[in-house]
Amino acid sequence: MRKLSEQELDQVKKAIAAKELISAEILMEIYDHYVSHLESFEDSEFETEMLELEMKFTHNYCKELQEKHFDSTHKGMRTLQWKIFKSQFSWPRFIVTATTFSLISILWTTIDGRTRTVVILVPLGIILLLIAWISIKSTVKIRSLKKTLGVSNYIQSDYLKIILGQWSFILSTLTLSVLAPKNLGFTDPFTNPYYTFITFFLAILYLGYFLTLLKAWKLKSKTSLI
């Protein structure tokens, strides 16, 4: 086992950068694979082994690996969040869940339609703050990875990409709930029972999402690039 020279490392970095990958996790793993492999050969064999690696890790193969990684990460994140969500209904946590649910129900019957709209913006704001925090943490981790790999193009953690996708979905639910009553022909949506139901549903959704995201991030931040 030997250490690669700066020139050899530059060659590896250039070869990896040429694959135009954006997944930080894949870049990190491929780079380590290249260097680990090349380190186990003498410097006279560097070019041959580098060529062999390049034949295995072709542009298309790396893109496919990137897509598969995104799909797996997406599935993993969804499974983890669902597991966290389900755990809220296990004993004794169920007491807290039921109490929270009851308190929101009581609150929803006592406040008017316009206030409900403002109230659902509170968990939404907290989610936004959490996502901003996760983005900052991820950017710091990725900046260090970019420095190691010497890449200047945009790279992102697949986990962050998934979280930002979920944020878009969350925002679209709010937009739909505000626009839908008007589209359905309700002149004063705030007094309509539909609006009471939909805002209650959104409040529960946002709160549930915030909790699952927070716990999933706490678990994943220790082991991944978020």
């Binding site: 380590d32 260097v35 797996s72 993993g76 499974t79 990875l145 190691t148 220790k222 082991t223 991944s224």
Partner: peptide, 19 residues
């Protein structure tokens, strides 16, 4: 890893990150 059978850990090894 996605199925929850494996967990990962990132470590700094000789100026690079290893999973």
């Amino acid at each position: 890893e996605a199925e929850g059978l494996l967990t990962t850990e990132i470590q700094q090894v000789d100026n690079r990150v290893r999973k």
